[in-house]
Design a protein around this nucleic acid. Structure first.
Lengths: 228, 228
DNA sequence: TGACATTTGTCCGTATGTATA
DNA sequence: CTATACATACGGACAAATGTC
């Protein structure tokens, strides 16, 4: 796929700051010659970069690179994709079980009651400091071979690479909660601290709900970008 | 613009539930004939609908309509765009002033210290119940005629329609806070309640920061959709 | 299992419209 | 006013995935 190659190459150049912020990208005609393709292909690559917040273009003027804050938080990234290379991410598995769906779970997943579900609870530590407490449910029939070992690793990566499922969307529901005694102990924070609770619904293509997660993040703020 | 017409028409049909969820959209060839256009134009309209979460397509298979939760919260909408028609939104202006930027504000807006800024604080009530407390800063030079009256209305609408500026992105930073005495009184909630504090940065095209807002929302959760 | 038609995805060339400098 | 650069639109060809017989 030619346009993906162009897209990847331009993205890399942008991330390496080869283009200074707001500087122009020498024009579509030039890029056609540089990559030896048609304008259609170049525009498709630019479209993708635009959609992900890397660039914007203006008729009659040119193509401009956006500052990093425009694109860094726009797409769904896993915790392991977010953190830098030199920090240590550890997932402490606190619970792992195959359970049967109760009414609430069945409704969330749009499955019948008593459907077999994978359940796990884990504490994610960065450089040995607790950061996220996660409770996750996944339908067993979609992930027949999912093991404790998988639950300790990068689960979204598992879904994509091992199972070959295409992840489509993640719907996040954010609320504020106050840490009770139990939570404050596991998260090593004072009781009464205000934290963010995030409910995730990870969907595969064709609207299949693959994962329902409730997580509590300590000491953190979330950043989102909406496009008008 | 032909593709916008196709886009609008299909969007309207989707929102009116003319297509049942996950049902197919009769195919590109069919749509070409229906709207009397080329496949390029149809595909451009479909691309836009895809980006906004209304549909997804699969090679060899077809075009499918997504359930409402996929698209309803994906784009930047103002409070007045979100609420239903029959509820009463009232903005109580608590403060309005022209101030000079201190160091922190100057840094946020990337302007020099003492630049003239519009400042206002307002309480947004829905059916007479306090919902959002907002503190907003906007550079005076961008909005020369901005008045108290404008601050009582729909400000994003003012930016777009009255000033003719194009809004590009909104970057939200969400944190959890606990209501102190003063906040709890204005928001009519018990002291100590956990709430969401959202910092907005509304950018125009070319990365110009038009508005910086800090808002506190009571009794609410925020929903976001990330695309993988 | 294999062959086939269908449907979306990719790519090219070309022409014209429109905002900007 | 003019040249430039992006935006829109058309038509055609082939590739790749899917569903069906």
């Amino acid at each position: 796929m030619k346009y993906i190659k162009v897209y990847n190459d331009l993205k890399q150049k942008i991330q390496q700051n080869i283009y200074t912020t707001s500087s122009s990208l020498q024009g579509e005609e030039y890029l056609c010659e540089l990559y030896d393709t048609s304008r259609t292909t170049i525009r498709k690559a630019l479209e993708k970069l635009k959609h992900e917040g890397y660039i914007h273009s203006k008729q009659g003027s040119g193509i401009f690179v956006n500052p990093p804050e425009f694109y860094e938080e726009k797409n769904l990234r896993t915790l392991s994709e977010k953190i830098e290379k030199n920090v240590n991410l550890e997932n402490v598995l606190m619970n792992f079980n195959i359970i049967e769906a109760d009414q609430k779970l069945a409704e969330i997943f749009n499955l019948s009651i008593n459907t077999k579900m994978i359940f796990y609870k884990r504490l994610r530590k960065i450089n040995n400091i607790p950061k996220v407490l996660e409770v996750t449910y996944m339908p067993k029939y979609l992930f027949k071979n999912f093991s404790e070992e998988n639950a300790k690793g990068a689960v979204l990566r598992y879904i994509e690479k091992e199972c070959n499922y295409g992840i489509s969307h993640d719907i996040k529901n954010v609320t504020a909660i106050i840490l009770d005694k139990e939570l404050s102990e596991t998260l090593e924070m004072p009781e009464g601290t205000a934290t963010l609770q995030i409910e995730h619904k990870v969907y595969l293509i064709k609207s299949i709900l693959a994962q329902y997660t409730k997580e509590i993040q300590v000491n953190s703020n979330i950043r989102f970008v909406s496009v008008r």
